[in-house]
Simulated assay, not measured.
Amino acid sequence: MGGTVAEIELSPAEFVLEETINAVEGLECEVERVVANVDGDVMPFLWVDAPDLEGLEDVLEEDETVDNVRLLADVDGEQLYQMDWVQRVDALVQVLVEEEGTVLSAVGDASGWQFRLLFPDRDSLSRTNDYCRSNGIQFQLHAVYSLEEGRQGRFGLTDDQQDTLEIAFERGYYEIPRDADMMALAEEMDISHQALSERLRRAHRSLVQNTVIIGQESDPDE
């Protein structure tokens, strides 16, 4: 296996730059590179963009989650900063230092921070998840998949399972009350009622295992 990728979302209140993001309308942040040392200091290179960046440095100076802010470049209206993240970075330190994780991408705005994180294996992801839960760090886990799979097969779904879930959702199978029953779905997909039932059961199991319960190996018989 080439490692495990997790796509997660943190709110600004759970991470850094909440004050700055709230103060500067339309601010968008993208991490160029992030490193952490053995002391747990996280030092990112961060691109920022907004309709109006005037006064941004003053706002950053007042933001208690960052320190040592330095403007490195101003290119076509975007600004590149280096800074120290000094608060609310426990989860990221756990990933980078203790679990040998890598930040593949990170972007943030008023809606939250979106991360793609690479772990050596699923156990590393599971330990990070346990650490966050035990320390009250809230995040949304959107996807877990093998790096070798890319974005295909994420959540552990086969192509047939993913197609079936999408069709079931579009036809209103998950509505209350249902707009389509299993018999109608099976007929549309030209498979038996039993085959559809088994496919949905295995798809639901994969979704639970790869979102709600992480760090456990799939049953090879499934």
Rank of each mutant, 00 (worst) to 15 (best):
G101S: 12
W113F: 11
R154L: 02
E98C: 07
M182I: 15
V69H: 02
Q138W: 06
D74C: 06
W85G: 09
V144S: 04
Q82T: 14
T158G: 00
D76K: 10
E148Y: 07
N210T: 00
L27A: 07
Y173N: 06
V89N: 08
R88G: 04
R154V: 01
T102V: 12
S124V: 09
A203E: 00
D63F: 13
N129P: 02
V35A: 15
L165Q: 02
L53G: 11
E54R: 15
M182E: 15
E98K: 12
E98D: 15
V24W: 05
M182L: 15
R202V: 00
I8N: 05
T211R: 14
D52C: 07
S192M: 00
N135G: 10
T4L: 13
I176L: 10
T164I: 01
E18L: 10
Q79F: 04
E100A: 14
V16P: 03
D90A: 10
L185T: 07
L71T: 08
H193W: 05
G108P: 14
F155A: 05
Q94I: 04
R178G: 02
D159E: 08
D190P: 03
E30P: 10
G136M: 07
E149D: 12
C132I: 13
L118K: 15
A180L: 05
S218C: 01
D76T: 06
F155L: 09
N135F: 03
L104K: 08
G26T: 12
R201F: 01
E149R: 14
T65D: 02
L196K: 13
V103T: 13
I167C: 03
E54G: 11
R70P: 01
V34A: 07
L200N: 01
L72N: 03
